[in-house]
Design a protein around this nucleic acid. Structure first.
Lengths: 196, 196
DNA sequence: CATATTAGAAACGGTTAAGTATCTTATTTG
DNA sequence: CAAATAAGATACTTAACCGTTTCTAATATG
């Protein structure tokens, strides 16, 4: 007998449990359909505890996304081969999506027009972040130019942004992580053949 | 003096005014933020009149979309030239979007995950309608094959769907009608060069 | 002109969920 | 071990908005 009479969580332990519950509710239901009650219930606590830490629903969910969404990779591949660099670049974009999984991607896409969450949405899904993500691509292409693989000046901007555009389309239309097969197809069937 | 003491609308006149108000509210606010009250107010009538005609909000908005969203074109271009056929095909997709305008496109994209409206969303925005829209593209390509312009059997499916994919990406990412410049770029800079 | 329709107006009831307040009780800390 | 802290539980307030109801008055129709 003599079970633990209770096991009241406090501080960081409780906070982490709440943030995890918030993340799961978000993945399962999306922002609009989750409620503070449902998050509290999932974390086996109650609303008041939530409001003691975050002043409203948007702040709670932003905090959960901040923790659970992987940060995008920053290293720019430089293998001495354009084709491989582009594949690795796209794989670097795909990896975070594989970690979060299809449910969360679906939920995130549903929030693309939600102003109170937009800052927490990964750049790969966000409109208007072309330049930021495109910068890495440009570096890859400049490296290829140094090796004499391409002539950057005579490449159309549309071709330059094509790998990223197709990658994004894949995510936006399928709502799931982008497969390796898709990545190599984008590069080998579309992008590379366009470089003459 | 002697103004018209009143001018109470009835029947079809009133119904059209309500549907127009519903369409405008939808374009301005999106489904989630428009209310039956706001539609009634915009149509200068009241909620009860709306509920006498449509049993709920979803039905009202579906009816409005049904009227105000142009039906997609059905004719498949056959000019004797592949490049021109594909440009005309994409223009046929762009035309309805130009009619509805950027605000409505934005609102429609916001509803892509809304089950009660999804059937009213134009195929060009809807996921899972590739085959329907792609059929026209396939016919165009078969015609080109008959003329000896291409060999369909050795074309990757990814290249076949590329014009449509890029068109869709353009709409999904920019939330506005697709310009003619973009269409010709997709065809002349990307698609045609990939056919050897 | 009499009668049936249907619009106008306004109040009402129900639901959902956000956010607050209060009180009790477990656990930490000095 | 006493006092402070923070969790648990629950009730409450507020707000938005859907959908209904009821009553009055305008207008169409026979």
């Amino acid at each position: 007998m003599d079970e633990q009479k209770s096991n009241r969580r406090r501080g960081e332990v409780l906070e982490s449990a709440i943030l995890q519950a918030a993340w799961e509710e978000f993945s399962d239901l999306g922002y609009a359909h989750l409620t503070m009650e449902s998050v509290a219930a999932r974390a086996k606590t109650n609303k008041a505890v939530l409001y003691r830490r975050w002043s409203n629903k948007a702040e709670l969910i932003r905090a959960a996304l901040h923790i659970y969404l992987p940060k995008p990779m920053t290293v720019i591949p430089d293998t001495g081969n354009l084709r491989n660099d582009v594949v690795l670049y796209l794989r670097g974009l795909a990896e975070p999506l594989q970690i979060v999984g299809a449910d969360a991607i679906h939920a995130l896409i549903g929030e693309l027009l939600n102003k109170s969450l937009i800052s927490a949405i990964p750049p790969i899904l966000q409109p208007g972040t072309e330049s930021k993500l495109g910068a890495a691509m440009l570096t890859i292409l400049k490296n290829a130019e140094k090796r004499g693989e391409i002539n950057l000046a005579q490449m159309s901007p549309r071709i330059i942004s094509l790998p990223l555009d197709l990658f994004r389309y894949e995510v936006l239309s399928r709502h799931e992580p982008v497969s390796d097969k898709t990545i190599t197809e984008i590069v080998d069937v579309i992008f590379m053949p366009l470089l003459k």
